[in-house]
């Protein structure tokens, strides 16, 4: 096939008001307008949508899985950040 690759877009859908937009998948389209229309056809066929966001896949900056220990490990060692680290005497009751 000699055609150049069609750009890739990531699709985010908000199923109801009160919920955040959630990533549902991706699709190919030449421009934003066509991507939005295709996203409606591909990802919202059952009437469960309030709004769609589309984002060029190339615009997403992602953390590197090979650096995940360096990026996220500190949350496991800083146990004093969790409420269960602190003891409350039974007599004090629920806090």
């Amino acid at each position: 096939m000699t055609e150049a690759a069609t750009p890739l877009w990531e699709v985010f859908v908000r199923p109801r008001n009160g919920l955040a937009h959630r990533h549902v998948g991706s699709l190919h389209a030449h421009d934003a307008q066509m991507a939005l229309q295709a996203a409606r056809d591909v990802y919202t066929r059952r009437g469960e949508t309030q709004s769609i966001w589309i984002v060029p896949s190339t615009a997403i900056v992602a953390s590197d899985p090979s650096e995940k220990d360096m990026m996220f490990e500190p949350t496991a060692t800083k146990i004093y950040r969790h409420p269960t680290f602190y003891e409350v005497p039974d007599e004090v009751g629920h806090m």
Partner: peptide, 29 residues
């Protein structure tokens, strides 16, 4: 509606395959 779903299912699946490093154009080919 059923046929439209099948087109949609094909597209979800092509997208899933592309995450493994193969292009849509290659798959069609």
């Amino acid at each position: 509606a059923k046929i439209q779903d099948e087109a949609g299912h094909g597209l979800y699946l092509y997208s899933a395959a592309e995450t493994l490093g193969v292009s849509r154009e290659e798959l069609y080919d």
